[in-house]
Design a protein around this nucleic acid. Structure first.
Lengths: 114, 114
DNA sequence: CAAACTGGTTACCTGTTCGTAACTAACGCT
DNA sequence: AGCGTTAGTTACGAACAGGTAACCAGTTTG
């Protein structure tokens, strides 16, 4: 989802979420470090459908995060890669993954004392 | 949204998105560095409704990211703050905001050559 | 002729998210 | 008695996100 109202907010985190705030985009960006072909991405990203992958890649391309290269072949071969702007996200996403791996184990009982 | 299927994925970014992948959560976390009262948060976070704020704070509390403290007062006073686990997100979110501020200006025409 | 390949599109449907507006509780004040 | 305060709840409807399945194109192969 690209949220126009978010994108024009005075709050920079809100603007960032306006562009990246789909549940799939950060996942796709991370996977682009390992696969480039559309079909490979569709196979390797857990739980995603081709329809959503296509849509999200299109938005990422429009936002200058991803680059699309179509080769003049049949059957069609298209490869996606990160632009420098997209590459700049990678260290941040690695920290986010690491943050989540450091999540303390909590039981349901103690995580919601309220 | 908390997505159970995402939370059990083998991919760590997918698991992280299973917990944080709502469009509001990172925004709320950032705002908790400046406001603690529920009403202040509702006023200062752009575009959010009290219903969504309540729901998202509850999930953040359940996931050990946010701490809720209710004072024995009337009318009720409740303050929210980040747990150490939530605090650990802040440098990452600052980088995300900075990344977005560094977004190159693109016209619609040049951002979607495909 | 049919099948396979790839990347993408589309119609339809379901599930989720969200916003609105009204409501709740108990106290203090007028 | 009614109003204001705060934080939270709830019902309802709207909007959005997403999945499924079928379709498309052109070449190659059997």
């Amino acid at each position: 989802m690209r949220d126009a109202a978010f994108c024009t907010s005075a709050c920079s985190m809100t603007r960032a979420m306006g562009v990246l705030g789909s549940k799939w985009k950060l996942i796709i960006i991370v996977h682009l470090t390992q696969q480039r072909r559309f079909g490979q991405l569709a196979q390797r990203i857990p739980l995603i459908s081709r329809k959503v992958l296509t849509e999200q890649l299109k938005e990422l391309e429009e936002d200058g995060i991803v680059r699309r290269e179509a080769f003049a072949e049949l059957p069609p071969r298209v490869e996606y890669s990160l632009t420098p702007h997209g590459q700049a996200l990678l260290p941040i996403l690695e920290q986010l993954s690491a943050w989540h791996c450091a999540t303390p184990a909590v039981t349901a009982a103690e995580s919601a004392p309220g």
